[in-house]
Simulated assay, not measured.
Amino acid sequence: MSEVSPEESSKKGVSRRGVLIGGAAGVAGIAAFAFLSSRGSGGVSTTADCITTDMSASEPTLAVSNWPEYIDVDDGDYVSTLTQFQEDSGLQVTYTPDVNDNLEFFAKVRNQLGACQPTGRDLFVLTDWMAARMVQAGWMQKLDKANVPNLDKNLISSLRGPTWDPNRDYSAPWQAGFTGIAYNRALVPEVRTMDELLTRADLKGKVTLLTEMEDTMGLLMLSDGADPENFTDAQYSAALDKLSKARAEGQIRAFTGNEYINDLAAGNIAACVAWSGDVAAADNEDLVFLPPEEGMMIWSDNMLVPVQGLHKANAEKWINNYYDPKVAAKLAAYVWYVCPVEGAREEMESIDPSLVDNPLIFPTAEYLSKTHGFKAITDAERAVLEKEYTSVIG
């Protein structure tokens, strides 16, 4: 049996995206960027003296770190993809949902990674921008393409070729998702734009925004007509001023991680900036997720093998397994995030036909046209932007 902590016992509740905890974690986050920047552009060299000997042939084990509520679980007669993988591969998987926040997780592993020491993990899952930092620092192992044929064959076109890993040599998307607006339609009419969210009188004091800078600031810049993939300092500052004004006027109740979903369902808040999968997993017909009229943000979380991962070939078996369309569809039917695997939509017909045309799982080209990423920035630039953002959200 796999080792799965209590957080994984239910599909509902906290999802894959975590809260950037204030205070110590915020300081740790800024320190993390300073630490990465100090490594220089090359970071730690992934040479033979840093990459450990792969023990996969003699040790049929695998240690995976992922976000909470990001995988299906055994339930009665239902056999999870994790359990099935263990049965098919013969591997013993220790699966730990301990990636609660990108910066927080980085603080857990940075000293070992920087010193070329094992982290106790063979594979972990991080959001684009942090995955990019890890790859650029030289802390991730290059995947053996012969061991992951399903990745190159079945990765959807919209997730191919990111600037930080153009050939997907180091990374494989686990799931993807959107950042937009959610509201409780039992309490208020539809909230169509970020400006409505920040100014409507019926929402005053009943709004939450996200602590993750890229998500909230990306949407705010879109609301000003700026492009979050190519913005200026002045545009960022203008969006920050809008945010500061809304907070000073009492429009915003709090800045949160994904705990907002409980407050939205309970009626403690009426609308918020939200992640698509959270609203879907809440299974509450009164909660509605929609793209703001000006557009929404898109992101993906990526599987990575650290340089001191002791079971690289076993990790590659895991990656290849989850890029099988049948396995990917089964997972997508449970977690309700954007499935990165071509062919999974067709497989969904036999699993849950009601999900085949769900744009939050299988978005159309038209739906994707409304999405934007956050521009690539250096660690030093990120530290400045995060500090400015933190000074406003407190």
Rank of each mutant, 00 (worst) to 15 (best):
L331H: 09
H311I: 08
W318D: 01
G138L: 03
E212H: 15
K387W: 06
R200A: 13
D224N: 15
L287R: 12
S276Q: 11
A246E: 08
Q117V: 07
E104I: 07
I156D: 02
E87C: 11
P228S: 12
N111R: 06
I377S: 01
S9H: 15
L304I: 08
M134K: 00
E293G: 08
D202C: 02
C50D: 07
Y170P: 10
Y337S: 09
D241G: 11
G394K: 13
E381L: 06
I351G: 00
K330C: 00
Y170N: 09
E196I: 05
D233N: 12
T378M: 02
L220D: 01
I319Y: 05
T256W: 01
K204A: 07
A266D: 01
D227H: 08
D263H: 10
S38L: 03
P162E: 07
Y367R: 10
T53S: 10
P340L: 08
W67R: 14
L287Q: 06
T119M: 04
D202P: 00
E104S: 10
E293C: 04
V93N: 00
L264H: 00
F374Q: 08
A182L: 01
P340V: 10
L355T: 09
A186P: 02
S89T: 12
G250E: 04
P292G: 04
V27A: 14
P325I: 03
I261S: 08
V73R: 12
G218K: 02
A315W: 00
F362C: 06
M55H: 09
Y95T: 03
V73G: 05
K370R: 15
S354W: 04
D98C: 12
Y70F: 14
A32F: 04
P292A: 01
L113F: 02
L287F: 08
S15C: 13
V335E: 04
G161T: 14
M134Q: 06
C272H: 01
T163L: 15
P353E: 12
M140F: 01
T46E: 14
R200Y: 04
V125M: 11
K11H: 08
W67L: 09
G22M: 07
D49P: 00
A266R: 01
D152T: 13
G267P: 03
A176N: 09
Q86R: 05
P291V: 05
V273M: 02
D263G: 08
D98Y: 03
Q92L: 10
L355Q: 15
R345T: 03
A328K: 13
V288Q: 03
M194I: 15
P60K: 15
L123N: 01
E190D: 13
V307F: 04
A344M: 02
A172M: 04
D283H: 07
L355R: 11
V93H: 04
G250H: 06
A115Y: 00
E349G: 05
N268A: 07
A238N: 07
E249D: 14
L220V: 15
R17C: 10
R247Y: 10
E366Q: 14
V305I: 15
E69P: 02
M297P: 05
D301P: 03
F178Q: 05
K12D: 12
V327M: 11
A226T: 03
R382H: 11
N167V: 08
A254L: 07
D101Y: 13
S56T: 11
I393M: 11
A271M: 12
S223P: 12
F33T: 01
K11C: 02
W318F: 15
S2M: 11
A146V: 06
H372C: 03
A313T: 14
